[in-house]
């Protein structure tokens, strides 16, 4: 089990984080980027999972600049408007400062990789373009491909998408593959959010396959 800590970003902003350490010497560091519900139960369980796999893992609270301490277990549509209002003030540039602070925090473990889901999947790609001291990135179903397709990665990167994702057109995933033939882009039978075991969209078979690929990728790239 991990612990809740605080990080200080380069601009002085103090951000919450959840961090878990492996039992032995870490294989490397992993920054895990959340969906849009903050450091909720599932995200914390993912951090713990990476620690169990041997990585020093941390998830920065990416919503803290909008509402400090925000996290929610409510995946229902009754919550959509509130989070929508919250995200109106989201600043992507400042989000990168929080990711960078998380990278520095786990850099003692060796090379650091980034992974994340949905919002975090998008920022896995953006981080792979920005650098931020990272060595590899493995992102899951980051939406808005036209908004990041021009951001060429500067490190090894792989992506995972669901073929039944009604928020991310397959046509756009195909464009991404054509644009970056050296970036492994995997497509699974699942829908959006297929890895989240706390949601109805959970697809166990796709998740096992995708998680296995990410672990193999990190084992290779962070060694």
């Amino acid at each position: 089990m991990g612990e809740r800590i605080k990080l200080t970003a380069a601009d002085g902003f103090v951000v919450n984080a959840y961090k878990a350490a492996p039992a032995g010497k870490p294989k490397g560091g992993v920054v895990l980027l959340q969906e849009v519900w903050g450091l909720n139960h599932w995200i914390r369980s993912e951090v713990d999972r990476y620690a169990a796999e041997g990585y020093l893992c941390i998830a920065p609270a990416m919503m803290d600049r909008l509402e400090f301490g925000f996290e929610s277990e409510n995946y229902g549509s009754d919550h959509f408007v509130k989070v929508g209002e919250l995200m109106k003030n989201f600043d992507p540039a400042k989000a990168l400062l929080d990711i960078e602070a998380a990278v520095k925090d786990v850099a003692s473990a060796g090379k650091v990789g980034v992974t994340g889901y949905c919002f975090g999947g998008r920022f896995s790609w953006v981080s792979a373009h920005a650098g931020l001291g990272l060595s590899a990135a493995s992102g899951y179903y980051g939406g808005g491909i036209p908004n990041y397709i021009d951001l060429a990665p500067v490190m090894p990167l792989e992506m995972h998408y669901g073929e039944k994702d009604t928020g991310i057109p397959l046509d756009q995933i195909e464009q991404l593959r054509q644009r970056y033939p050296n970036v492994p882009i995997y497509v699974y039978p699942g829908e959006h959010g297929f890895c989240n075991s706390d949601k109805k969209s959970y697809d166990e078979a796709s998740t096992k396959l995708a998680n296995g690929r990410t672990l193999a990728f990190f084992a290779q790239q962070l060694a």
Binding site: V36, S77, V81, G84, C118, G144, D165, I168, E191, S201
Partner: peptide, 30 residues
């Protein structure tokens, strides 16, 4: 395929995948 703006009060009627993706794409859905 075009990105379409969604007024925040209409969010409650969006499928969850559209909703999640729209939040970090300027309140737009594909």
């Amino acid at each position: 395929t075009r990105a379409v703006k969604v007024p925040i009060p209409d969010y409650a009627s969006l499928p969850i995948s559209d909703y999640m993706v729209s939040l970090y794409n300027g309140n737009t859905v594909q």
